[in-house]
Amino acid sequence: MDDYFAELGELFERFNVVGAFWTNIQLTFWAALIALALGTVLALMRISPIASLRFAGTAYVNVIRNTPLTVIIIFMVLVVWTLFAVTLAPGFNDNFFRLAVIGLAIYHAAFVCEAIRSGVNTVPVGQAEAARAIGLPFLAAARLVILPQAFRGSIAPLGNTLIALLKNSTVAAAGSVSWETASTMRLMIEFRPDHLYLIFFIFALGYVVLVIPIGVVTTWLSDRLAVKR
């Protein structure tokens, strides 16, 4: 038993599991912020009076959500960094971390947009009519009446998107962020294949522990903040 724990200690000393999870949490946090902003703009575009903006928003969503995330992350490095020499930070590791954040945000913004649109659909038509009746133009109606209610109605799908984003942050492995969880787990398994079950269990448990609170909080928030009609 002591040997077993000694081996475990060695495994954890050699591989920074907590650091790996911290990387995924940070990737998720920054990507979520950017995706929320971009997704809101896209949702506004998709319900806006201007046909070309609607077209652009729809095109973005249809292209991005049908592309594998792996491809988007690979393109961030292959096209944006390699060919266009876009550098987001002086250090290599920071740079690829930020490129991965942008890639994750671009992908998940399409889903944020759809989540907000589904929230817009929960706003009764009378609200929009009332906003128009008091003379609000489109942007003011959207900002003051529609979006605040829409956000409340879209908390559940936004929470699902956040959970998906957290799990998808492992795909940053394809963008040279080699110190995140999926890569770390792979290295650990290659190093100690005899501890396969334990290693997988630790990582799986880590995600369960992170995902379940997000689910609980978003369900609670969505019940609490739902506009009672």
Partner: peptide, 13 residues
């Protein structure tokens, strides 16, 4: 919406 999680069906038309 194809992100891998069921979206709560909008209850209001």
């Amino acid at each position: 919406v194809g992100i891998g999680n069921p979206v709560a069906a909008p209850v209001v038309p």
